[in-house]
Simulated assay, not measured.
Amino acid sequence: MRFDLTQTIAAPVDEVARAYASAELYEALGGNDKLGPPDVLDRSEDGDVVTLRIRYQFVADLSPAVTAVVDPRKLTWVERSVHDLATRSVAVTLHPDHYADRLRCTGAYRYSASGDDATVRRIDGDLKVKALLVAGAVEKAIVSGLKEHLEAEADDVERYLGR
């Protein structure tokens, strides 16, 4: 499933890009009714390139058809993101803790200025779930959770940046 999401944050683009490359931002973020709070596992920096590894957990209720083939407690993954601060871009790969043969997700983020004091973050990705009969439902639920998380996250990022 291809997906494209857009997020607007009321802060200058370089501040936003640097914030997303910091461990402190993720430690300040909470979860929502679909995704639990992020858990920063590690961060490394090499010039303008920052690599983060963050664990997430899907926490929403799933239908009985989905839970018949997937244990909701095992819907956790590590997001590896490589932030290029010079180009304001991020490459993202998800690595499932469980069901590695059933979930694949890659994506990219791009930050661009919207006026002097706002940032547009464009997210595009490819999510593939392998599960008989329910793959589409699981994919839609994950993307829906991501969308809700990003909508709530914009306010959190603005607060983190003192806006």
Score class of each variant (00 low, 15 high):
44 S>M: 09
38 P>C: 09
19 A>G: 08
53 R>D: 03
55 R>I: 05
47 G>Q: 11
47 G>A: 11
13 V>F: 05
20 Y>Q: 08
38 P>F: 00
36 G>W: 04
20 Y>N: 07
30 G>Q: 11
27 E>W: 01
35 L>C: 03
47 G>C: 12
62 L>H: 10
47 G>W: 12
33 D>E: 15
10 A>F: 04
43 R>W: 10
24 E>L: 02
30 G>W: 04
42 D>K: 14
52 L>D: 06
38 P>N: 12
33 D>V: 13
47 G>N: 13
59 V>G: 07
31 G>K: 04
28 A>D: 08
18 R>N: 12
16 V>M: 08
29 L>E: 00
9 I>R: 02
61 D>I: 06
32 N>R: 09
18 R>D: 13
44 S>P: 01
27 E>T: 04
11 A>M: 11
18 R>W: 03
9 I>D: 02
46 D>W: 04
28 A>R: 07
15 E>F: 00
34 K>V: 12
12 P>A: 11
8 T>G: 00
42 D>Q: 14
15 E>W: 02
13 V>D: 07
30 G>C: 03
37 P>H: 07
52 L>T: 07
48 D>F: 09
36 G>E: 11
39 D>Y: 00
45 E>N: 10
40 V>S: 08
9 I>V: 15
8 T>Y: 02
59 V>T: 15
44 S>T: 15
14 D>Y: 04
34 K>Y: 12
33 D>L: 13
40 V>C: 07
17 A>V: 07
34 K>L: 11
12 P>D: 14
55 R>V: 06
42 D>M: 10
39 D>W: 00
38 P>Y: 01
49 V>A: 13
10 A>P: 01
58 F>R: 02
50 V>M: 04
15 E>V: 05
11 A>H: 09
36 G>N: 08
60 A>C: 06
62 L>W: 07
34 K>Q: 14
57 Q>V: 10
46 D>C: 04
13 V>C: 13
30 G>K: 10
47 G>K: 13
54 I>M: 03
23 A>W: 02
28 A>M: 03
27 E>A: 04
34 K>T: 14
36 G>L: 11
17 A>R: 01
48 D>R: 14
51 T>V: 15
40 V>R: 06
17 A>Y: 00
47 G>M: 12
8 T>N: 07
48 D>G: 11
59 V>Y: 07
49 V>Q: 14
19 A>S: 12
10 A>Y: 05
25 L>R: 04
60 A>M: 06
50 V>P: 01
46 D>K: 09
56 Y>D: 06
60 A>Q: 10
55 R>M: 10
15 E>P: 00
44 S>F: 06
31 G>P: 02
15 E>Q: 15
60 A>N: 09
40 V>E: 11
52 L>C: 08
21 A>F: 01
62 L>N: 08
20 Y>E: 11
59 V>N: 14
36 G>V: 10
53 R>N: 02
61 D>T: 15
12 P>W: 08
56 Y>Q: 09
12 P>K: 07
